[in-house]
């Protein structure tokens, strides 16, 4: 383990990381977002879901540096007296959870389809890639909206509120798998004709086994980059769906939900209710995107 760590700090990936101040900065911002979100129940100054601790007298408090602000609520409070900083931390938790799960789902689905299409080829490949093409012509947000709308029509309202989180994850995941399938199919086509695969085939290793344990490890590299870049998109997609009011349930507000709620108070001058969750969202997405860009360049030997 120690040797592996030492090797990592000696690698050129680490070297290119150290050399780029923008990347280091975005890694720090991303780390703050992730830690703040993951540990929200332990480090948030207030619990925004504890109804007993909410006091309407504290509603609409501006941020602490404004004239009427108090030190107790650093970023002010919303219409129900909830501390904005805590709400943002809990909201980022939902946003990250949905973004990560949706990306994981899209990766699993896309990698399986891409492997199958690339390795089996023929009619299977043709059909799967046609489906990919058709779906890629539609913007993913539209696909996610449609999936959400259909599920809403199929299941009764009470059930929907309970499974809403999974519906959003499924909707975003299903709208973004073709990118992964395309990437994996491309590398699989290259790998399948290499000698080690032929050798495995000759000694009679079953197809599924060749795909899973021989081809797969050699095609996952680019998937990592696509997944990182996709994480930012998935977080934005979730925020957009929640902003449109069809995303996560109001009982588990994400950053998008907070922005939507705050939007109602924009005209009465309480700008902080919507702007701070917005800034948190931008910081999170921008840092993840910059990290993804860096990873793409660092793992591409042609650019060194």
């Amino acid at each position: 383990m120690a040797a592996a760590i030492a090797r990592f700090f000696d690698s050129d990936v680490w070297w290119s990381f150290k050399r780029s101040p923008v990347t280091v900065a975005s890694a720090i911002v991303a780390a703050i977002c992730i830690i703040g979100a993951a540990l929200a129940p332990f480090i948030a100054p207030h619990n925004p879901f504890d109804l007993a601790s909410l006091n309407l007298i504290d509603a609409f408090k501006p941020p602490s540096w404004a004239e009427e602000g108090t030190a107790e609520y650093l970023l002010g409070t919303d219409d129900q007296g909830r501390d904005m900083l805590s709400a943002i931390m809990y909201g980022a938790r939902v946003s990250l959870l949905v973004g990560l799960s949706a990306t994981l789902f899209a990766t699993l689905l896309g990698v399986s389809v891409g492997l199958l299409a690339g390795y089996v080829g023929g009619a299977v490949d043709g059909l799967l890639m046609r489906i990919c093409d058709v779906q890629l012509t539609f913007p993913s947000i539209l696909v996610a909206l449609l999936v959400d709308g259909v599920v809403r029509a199929v299941v009764p309202r009470e059930v929907h509120d309970q499974i809403a989180l999974f519906v959003v994850i499924f909707a975003i995941g299903i709208s973004e798998w073709p990118k992964f399938a395309r990437t994996v199919r491309g590398s699989t086509l290259v790998e399948r004709n290499k000698e080690y695969v032929q050798a495995a085939r000759v000694i009679g290793v079953p197809k599924l086994r060749i795909m899973a344990s021989h081809v797969l490890p050699n095609v996952v590299g680019p998937v990592l980059v696509v997944a990182t870049l996709n994480l930012g998109l998935a977080i934005l997609a979730e925020a957009t769906l929640s902003f449109l009011g069809v995303g996560v349930p109001p009982t588990q507000p994400s950053l998008g939900t907070l922005i939507r709620i705050g939007n109602d108070f924009l005209f009465s001058g309480e700008w902080w209710i919507t702007i701070f969750p917005g800034l948190a969202l931008v910081a999170m997405v921008l840092s993840v995107n910059l990290l993804g860009d860096w990873l793409r360049d660092a793992l591409n030997p042609k650019l060194r």
């Binding site: 902003f243 922005i259 939007n263 924009l266 005209f267 919507t274 702007i275 917005g278 931008v282 997405v285």
Partner: peptide, 22 residues
């Protein structure tokens, strides 16, 4: 342009409303 790519559409709208309308 980097900011333009990372800002979600609805947030751009909200910011524009805040500045130019409110």
């Amino acid at each position: 342009s980097l900011v333009g790519v990372s800002l979600p559409t609805f947030l751009i709208g909200i910011l524009l409303i805040l500045v130019f309308a409110v």
